[in-house]
């Protein structure tokens, strides 16, 4: 995995200017939403029990988790394309796990900006050594949950062609739920956030932990992460049995 990451990063940094521009623009993009929240908090002092600093934790954790996923496992976003166009052939012949190879096959340069922004937001709004360490652990779990969630839904392409549009819509819901405080959503959406679209485990519970650490929250996150990763491997491997090669002549880049 780390070798793939190294080569992906080297490839992404081939054009230094383009890489740095993507990173800086993503930081700017995420930071612009601070204006949205400053304006909202000028209209209302607290959202539920959350202050501006607390809301920025949702942003820090979402950006950090999103960054981790798209830096290390960006290949997951290509699963539908690989399935539809028979590009999985190149991975099937390798003596390694197919899903691991596919997941680590690419890196999104702008995700480095997401990860950096996560740390910047944490340092500006909620800095403490304890928070920094806990945050670094939590975004790994968040990233793994988000990655596994995408694998589960993108694997539907094995069964239903073009189902990636459906998966992408669910991904939008996942991201939108992660970026906003839980208190604004209805009960139905909260149930969804702790089941079919698990933003609750990836971001909301980690926010509770950064505000008030409880061991049971950590256990929930660890158990859910193990569960969803197992599910992701199961669904992908089951789907792989339906995969038919296209005899596509292609070389891995």
């Amino acid at each position: 995995m780390f070798l793939s990451f190294k080569y992906n990063l080297m490839r992404a940094m081939e054009n230094n200017v383009a890489f740095m521009t993507s990173v800086i623009m993503m930081i700017f993009n995420n930071a612009s939403f601070i204006i949205q929240w400053i304006t909202i908090f000028s209209l209302k002092e607290v959202i539920g029990t959350y202050t501006l600093n607390d809301v920025m934790l949702f942003w820090a954790l979402s950006s950090g988790s999103f960054g981790i996923t798209h830096i290390f496992f960006n290949g997951i976003t290509r699963i539908p394309d690989y399935i539809e166009h028979g590009k999985l052939d190149a991975y099937l012949t390798m003596p390694k796990n197919v899903l691991c190879q596919v997941a680590t096959s690419s890196l999104e340069p702008s995700a480095v900006g997401d990860l950096l922004y996560g740390y910047i937001a944490l340092i500006i709004f909620n800095f403490s050594i304890k928070n920094l360490l806990l945050y670094s652990i939590l975004i790994i779990f968040g990233g793994l949950i988000y990655a596994a969630f995408m694998v589960v839904y993108y694997s539907l392409t094995f069964k239903y062609i073009r189902s990636n549009y459906f998966a992408e819509s669910l991904r939008d819901v996942f991201l939108n739920l992660s970026l906003y405080p839980d208190v604004i959503f209805s009960k139905v959406l909260k149930i969804l956030a702790f089941s079919l679209i698990p933003s609750g485990f990836a971001v909301w519970i980690p926010v509770y932990m950064l505000l008030d650490f409880k061991l049971k929250y950590m256990l929930y996150v660890i158990l859910f992460t193990i569960g969803i990763i197992t599910l992701a491997f199961y669904v992908f491997n089951k789907g792989l049995k339906n995969y038919s090669s296209s005899n596509l002549m292609d070389a891995r880049s």
Binding site: S169, L177, I184, S186
Partner: peptide, 24 residues
């Protein structure tokens, strides 16, 4: 039609936010 989903989701989230702000 596929862009509609992204648009509707974003609008739903923002509506939830404003509904909460006005709920007091």
């Amino acid at each position: 039609l596929f862009r509609f989903c992204g648009f509707a989701i974003m609008m739903y989230v923002l509506t939830s936010l404003w509904r909460y702000i006005y709920s007091d």
